[in-house]
């Protein structure tokens, strides 16, 4: 997936059919982060913390349900990926880039949580048929996030 042109309102990417299939597969994994996973505070010293937490959970749940619906609509559009001589073309608005980054990071972080949140002190011990799909999802989300971030960065420095 490569940025071929950026204008004020659109980012135009070229990608292979193979990359398109990977992107579709990764997007279909949304949503991965478990509901009510993120605390509002680590120390329970906020006024009305319980109700604030539940309002935050509701707002995030609403947002994610909307994202899920948007992914289905986005993927269902037959003109989403246009055939060209050199592969497929994908045209994204800045808002779509932002939204895709959020969705891809949910897949990435959610897959990492499924693996038990490994880090330097507690690295992933076993690669097997259960853990491999999560690792694949992390790497694939990384691939597309990096392409999108490069496009944004190029635009900012231009």
């Amino acid at each position: 997936m490569k940025l071929i042109r950026a204008t004020k309102n659109r980012y135009h990417f070229r990608l292979t059919k193979w990359e398109k299939n990977l992107l579709v597969s990764v997007l279909k994994l949304y949503l991965r982060i478990p509901p009510a996973h993120q605390p509002l505070s680590k120390v329970a010293r906020l006024p009305d913390q319980e109700s604030s937490q539940s309002l935050l959970d509701e707002a995030l749940a609403e947002q994610r349900a909307e994202n899920k619906k948007q992914i289905q609509q986005w993927l269902a559009d037959p003109r989403r990926f246009c055939e060209s001589e050199k592969g497929l073309r994908l045209s994204l608005s800045p808002a779509e880039v932002e939204w895709l980054l959020q969705v891809l990071n949910d897949v990435r972080v959610g897959s990492w949580i499924f693996l038990g949140s490994p880090d330097e002190r507690r690295p992933l011990q076993i690669l097997n048929e259960t853990t491999a799909p999560h690792l694949w999802a992390i790497e694939m989300a990384d691939y597309f996030q990096t392409r999108l971030l490069e496009a944004l960065e190029g635009e900012r420095s231009a």
Binding site: K42, V43, L46, S52, L56, L60, L101, N105, V109
Partner: peptide, 25 residues
């Protein structure tokens, strides 16, 4: 302020970042 801090935590969590708000004591 509490309201603005909640707003920012929500925005950061929307991007799946690990963000919280704490009282400055």
């Amino acid at each position: 302020s509490m309201e603005k801090a909640e707003h920012y935590v929500h925005q950061l969590q929307k991007y799946s970042l690990h963000a919280t708000m704490e009282r400055d004591e």
